[in-house]
């Protein structure tokens, strides 16, 4: 899920919604455009990304194809108009807005190839 912003200050706080409340995870300035970080939210690993335009995304960090927690280390880009992150393990692309895998519908274990998504926002 995405929140449009007017270039927040580097010290602005990035928050992720969990259990009906917002949890602060880092400063906006800690996010490098086009790269991700991993946050621990309620015991789960969440990959947080900032794109070139400044928009933020938060998706599950575990890659359904390898079961490794590596999504935050993927490369961010676009496919058509869809913002994507590409898993560094076997290179499947995921829609950053919905978590849906664009390359394969299911993971090898038969589950749906989809990353959970979290609401994310920036507060001054």
């Amino acid at each position: 899920m995405t929140v449009d912003t007017q270039v927040p200050a580097a010290t602005a706080v990035v928050e992720i919604a969990h259990d009906e409340r917002w949890t602060a995870v880092c400063r906006y300035g800690e996010l490098v455009p086009g790269r991700g970080v991993t946050a621990l939210v309620g015991g789960e690993q969440v990959a947080v990304f900032r794109d070139r335009a400044g928009a933020l995304y938060a998706v599950a960090n575990t890659d359904p194809f390898s079961h490794a927690s590596v999504i935050s280390r993927g490369i961010v880009g676009s496919r058509g108009d869809t913002p994507v992150v590409v898993s560094p393990m076997y290179k499947q692309a995921f829609d950053l807005r919905t978590g849906k895998c664009l390359d394969e519908p299911t993971a090898p274990d038969g589950s749906a190839a989809r990353l959970s998504v979290w609401p994310v926002r920036v507060t001054a």
Binding site: G34, G74, I75, V76, G77, S78, R79, V86, K91, A93
Partner: peptide, 10 residues
């Protein structure tokens, strides 16, 4: 065009 991807960026 666009934002790039895991092919062109590296």
């Amino acid at each position: 065009s666009g934002e790039g991807c895991d092919i062109c960026k590296p």
